[in-house]
Amino acid sequence: MATPPEEDSLESRINKATNPLNKETDWESIKAFCEQLNNELEGPQLATRLLAHKIQSPQEWEAMQALMVLETCMKNCGKRFHSEVGKFRFLNELIKVVSPKYLGTRAPELVKKKVLEVMYSWTVCLPEETKISDAYQMLKKQGIVKQ
């Protein structure tokens, strides 16, 4: 049995925050995850990897909670996190969720819709992260984003 992540690691916090068994949104764990990722040297890099994995979950509630964590962190965690999310290394993982060539045919509709919504919101409120609009334009060109 894989050793469980230590109690207050980013991994254990994201597991709690996105647990499909949660009856409702676990804002405590979301807040703790955001604070922790800011206090660790490699926090933003690890956080985006963990979030990408959860967002790609076939379980709708787990993926939707992960998107809520992502949105909360984008509002509260500042520049270091913004620049990690603004890299193709992370954006490509979101693109896979909506692209029929990758996970798009299996991903829940609600999750795909939410991914496109948050990406669009970032093109508006984070214009300096130019790769985000590059990725969004490409999705529009491929007809994945309806005009």
Partner: peptide, 15 residues
């Protein structure tokens, strides 16, 4: 903590 600024990245996925 100021992390060293790592700008490494991948190319945009083409779909």
């Amino acid at each position: 903590p100021t992390s060293f600024h790592d700008d490494s990245d991948e190319d945009l996925l083409n779909v």
